[in-house]
């Protein structure tokens, strides 16, 4: 919006530079100014979008996954690998659809997961560690950024939501446990404590008192996989992959619908 003051011109109507529609629509008159304006849009929108994505994904995580990813002794081999990707794929699918359809930029999933992980660290550090007093190692977040990259790279390669769902979303669902295994493995080292066999994660869960989270609340194993031996995690990962394929398609459809400009037209 051009700002025109009476002092700058006695009669704005007489100056062609400020007259008519032009003066009310744009202050940009040269290509350099245009580039600068677009660059400023990039500079302003990127951090805002990252903050926004971080906030909403952390909120989504809190109200859906919650304890499953808060504590090391909840990240089990049966439910964590299924629940987390099934929920966390929602925003990468929606935002990825938006950035691809509107800009042909394969960055939506990565940016969402990046912002999510940064938001998680803030939440775990300030809420869980500084405020509530839990050791940071026990509540350190899991990482999901690479899953966003996989989704975006697949979209870039195939340029197809169908193929991205089939390949990228499947890996998004199947790989979280493997991605985080370098950290999880340390917490699954066995310990003998007070006559019980525990993992280091179980021990931390027992020692660091959570009044409202008794032992029985953790959903570690329910029922059995009788014919699959110890292959619990691979089977869960495979199933989570299929769940994510379907969930990705659903949220791409919703993302496409929400990307329509009809909403902004109505507001304006």
């Amino acid at each position: 919006m051009a700002i025109v003051t009476p002092e700058s011109n006695e009669s704005p109507d007489k100056d062609p530079k400020y007259s008519g529609e032009r003066s009310a629509k744009s202050a940009i008159t040269t290509r350099e100014e245009q580039i600068e304006a677009f660059r400023n849009i990039d500079l302003v929108s990127i951090p805002i979008i990252i903050l926004l994505f971080g906030g909403i994904t952390v909120f989504l995580s809190a109200v859906t996954v919650g304890d499953w990813d808060y504590w090391m002794d909840w990240r089990d081999r049966r439910w964590w690998p299924l629940v987390t990707p099934a929920v966390y794929i929602i925003f990468p699918a929606v935002i990825g659809t938006f950035t691809w359809k509107k800009f042909r930029l394969p960055i939506g999933a990565t940016a969402t997961m990046f912002a999510f992980v940064i938001g998680l660290w803030q939440s775990r550090y300030f809420n869980f560690h500084s405020f509530a007093g839990f050791p940071l190692n026990f509540v350190a977040p899991s990482t999901f950024i690479v899953l966003g990259i996989i989704l975006d790279a697949t979209l870039l390669w195939t340029k197809s939501f169908f193929a991205t769902g089939f390949i990228g979303a499947f890996f998004f669902g199947a790989l979280p446990y493997a991605v985080n295994w370098p950290v999880f493995a340390l917490w699954h080292v066995p310990v003998s404590y007070d006559g019980n066999l525990l993992t280091v994660a179980d021990l931390a869960g027992y020692q660091y008192i959570r009044t409202a989270i008794p032992e029985y609340v953790r959903i570690i194993e329910e029922s059995t996989l009788r014919t699959f031996g110890e292959a619990v995690t691979p089977l869960t990962a495979f199933f989570a992959g299929f769940v994510c394929v379907l969930n990705y398609y659903l949220w791409v459809v919703i993302g496409s619908y929400l990307s329509e400009s009809r909403w902004t037209h109505k507001v304006w």
Partner: peptide
């Protein structure tokens, strides 16, 4: 502090890749 360094480094590793991609 057990495992904290592993958590931090795993995150740093993937944050670098994520930032590089964007």
């Amino acid at each position: 502090t057990y495992g904290l360094n592993a958590s931090i480094w795993l995150h740093v590793f993937w944050v670098i890749f994520g930032l590089a991609w964007i």
